[in-house]
Nucleic acid binder design. Structure first.
Lengths: 134, 134
DNA sequence: ACCAGTAGGTACCTAGAGGAAAGTAATGGG
DNA sequence: CCCATTACTTTCCTCTAGGTACCTACTGGT
């Protein structure tokens, strides 16, 4: 019940008011999902610890939460091997792979990051110096 | 100083470890920025209250914060008219407009939302019913 | 008997984002 | 004189995502 409450909370705050892309953003670009999907898409099927080590700054709890969410959304496939030390493998699903052009568009825009940094420096210089009038 | 702290915090938690698109996501898809950019892109130059009414569920404080952030990142242009009741107009910048293909890719993926909903129902049915073994 | 290792689960706690509501400056209108 | 309007700002408060730390089951190795 806790999870569904969280899901509903996320859904409630998303202001889909005539903004048709907000739900997609909620699903695909919620926190941590980008590096997870990217790692699965880039390095193929992996185990829990591999993902954990690759992302490095994520905690196992949150990684589990996000993987469950992605599995529920059908973007990730989970395979559980009931072996002696349990082994679980995660891979990106067909639906998840359909996000590839989206990620490509993201990557295509990334050269503009320099422009953003420049804009930030300019803005901070305007505000930071004695520039802002009373 | 509070704002820059928040910016740095966001930057710290983003695990850009070999995930080149994470910074773009941080800038473009941080909370509330999607509906704001979409509204500005869709309905053109607008005043503060127009945006506020259009998004409806956003509070003025957060709208101001997000607009400042977007202005600092160079995605939005702010024009202040020092009139008797102050008037401010916001419009999307050239850099912001360069996000259009990204948004188009988002919109192109949105038909898959049905598949996501279906996957969620299937997952919930699996877990919700007596299906999960002890 | 004890530890290692996997894939988490759970309880507790903190930090910080976001909401609610009131304040602010300036001025025209009743 | 008081109110309304605009575009915020500020204060206070809540809420929850995420972090820390510890726990689980299972078996093989020593």
């Amino acid at each position: 019940m806790t999870e569904s409450t969280a899901q509903r909370a996320r859904a409630e705050v998303s202001p889909n008011n005539a903004c048709p892309i907000a739900p997609v953003v909620d699903i695909v670009f919620s926190r941590w999902t980008t590096p997870i999907l990217w790692a699965l898409n880039e390095y193929g099927r992996q185990r829990f610890v591999e993902l954990e080590r690759r992302i490095a700054t994520i905690t196992p709890k949150v990684l589990t939460q996000r993987l469950r969410q992605l599995e529920r959304d059908g973007l990730v496939l989970r395979t559980y091997h009931p072996e002696v030390p349990p082994r679980v493998e995660y891979e990106i699903s067909e639906l998840g792979r359909s996000l590839a052009p989206l990620f490509a568009a993201l990557a295509a825009w990334s050269p503009n990051l320099g422009t953003v940094e420049e804009a930030r420096r300019a803005y901070d210089a305007r505000q930071g110096a004695g520039g802002h009038s009373a």
